[in-house]
Simulated assay, not measured.
Amino acid sequence: MAKETHRFTWQGIEIEVTYTPLKWDMIDHLEIRSINPERAPLPITMTGYCSHYEQPGIIETFGADVVEQVIAWLDAEAAKPEWKAHLERSRQYSLF
């Protein structure tokens, strides 16, 4: 399979996902980055970039829709208290 690149918007953040099946002929690789705003924190990475490895075939097992699976991952992580606290802190101005 060839490398795939996808762009989508999640909660107002434009995201690019690159999926490389069988990178180095042994493992599947996802690169996820926020591109607009650039390097915006995401629930899976505070730097706006995530390199993630999966066992071969996992993406295909769950429907082969990379964007759908990344959105599900983002949604699941966004539901956690840590992300909700981050959002609350980023809404408030701090003098310190």
Rank of each mutant, 00 (worst) to 15 (best):
L22C: 10
T18K: 00
N36Q: 08
A40F: 04
Q11W: 13
W10P: 00
I58H: 03
Y53Q: 08
Y49P: 04
A40M: 05
T20R: 10
F62S: 07
T5P: 15
I59E: 00
I15L: 11
Y53I: 04
E54P: 07
I58F: 06
Y53K: 06
P37W: 02
A2V: 07
A40E: 07
D65N: 15
W10L: 12
Q11L: 08
M26Y: 02
G57Q: 01
I59R: 00
R7S: 13
I27S: 09
K3G: 09
G12F: 13
K3I: 10
G57F: 03
D28W: 13
I13R: 15
N36S: 06
I58N: 06
T61R: 12
E14K: 01
K3T: 05
P21I: 06
I35N: 01
E4Y: 12
W24S: 11
G63W: 08
T9Q: 09
H29D: 00
P43E: 03
F8I: 09
R39Q: 05
E31G: 00
Q11M: 09
P56Y: 12
H52N: 08
E4V: 11
W24F: 06
E60D: 08
I35W: 13
V67N: 04
T5G: 06
T20K: 14
T5I: 13
A40Y: 03
I58C: 02
D28I: 03
I13S: 05
V66I: 15
I15C: 08
Q11T: 04
T45M: 08
I35K: 03
I32M: 07
V17Y: 01
H29Q: 04
A2K: 15
V66G: 00
W10S: 03
E4C: 11
F62E: 02
